Computed example of a mutant assay.
Amino acid sequence: MDVAELILAGLAMALATVVQLSAGLGLGLVGVPLLAAIDPRLVPVPFVLSGLPMMLGQWRVDSGAVPPGMLAPALLGVVLGTAGGMALAILLPGIATRRGYGVIVLLAVALALAMPRLRPTRPMLAGAAAVSGVMGGISGVHGPLMGLVVAHLPAQAVRGFLGLFWLVAYGAILAAAVPAGRLGWQELWLALALLPGIALGAALSGPARRWLHGPRLRWAILGISGAGGIALVLAG
């Protein structure tokens, strides 16, 4: 990348980081399309690598607010779903499209609007996580379904829960990238190039975190999810 592309990539990551640390999700929905337009080599592996420290930090900061019993079914669901998605991608490479993922996300947004007091029960957490895992295993984009399931919880609980969820989901993608030969020195250097943008976004996210809570956080999650679903449908 030249200097101009490096600056643009850093700004894209800064914007995506502000959204992620404020709402608990949005790093992929905002960052991946922008980075792919700048340099396709930046996604998915360098992008995922650079995002791991931020997800770890998001989880560590807010993990104490996560209600007990929520994490186990979600993490089990995303691991099994990701493995299943990877297998499907190998056996049936034409099984999924971005438009299909977008429709699923928009249906989830409609469900969240129709049932504003949706509760994250263990079966619901496991099911949403499994669907997200399958989507991620096939395409590398897990989608915002988990955010919709927990959107009504207190802001710290949402961010802590989603931080660990995305951390595990990204780890599953990297675990698949190693045997596939997609994780090498080039990906590591590109990931390092994205870190200054993440640091800038983290520094700017404080005011947004303080403002986004309660109904504002829920509507932010719905808005980000809806925009991501529409973008996937239009991308086909």
Rank of each mutant, 00 (worst) to 15 (best):
I224R: 01
P196Q: 10
A235E: 06
A114Y: 15
A130G: 11
G197A: 09
V78W: 07
L164V: 13
G85P: 02
G26M: 09
Q58R: 06
A37C: 09
R210C: 03
L27N: 11
L42E: 09
G229P: 02
L204E: 05
G236W: 00
W185E: 09
L183Q: 01
I104F: 03
L56W: 11
L212W: 13
M86H: 06
G127Y: 06
L52H: 01
V18S: 10
L188Y: 05
G85V: 04
A193P: 04
L190T: 01
R117P: 01
L204H: 04
W211V: 03
L107T: 02
G24Q: 03
G10N: 15
V105Y: 00
P207H: 14
L113V: 05
G26H: 06
R216S: 02
L164N: 07
I38T: 03
V18F: 09
A129R: 06
L234P: 01
M13Q: 12
Q58A: 14
G201S: 08
A72D: 11
I221F: 07
L8C: 12
S63H: 15
A130M: 13
G229F: 00
P116M: 14
A4D: 10
V66Q: 08
G171E: 14
L11I: 09
I221V: 11
I7C: 02
V18N: 10
V66N: 07
A16V: 01
L194W: 03
D2R: 12
V45I: 11
M115Q: 15
G69E: 12
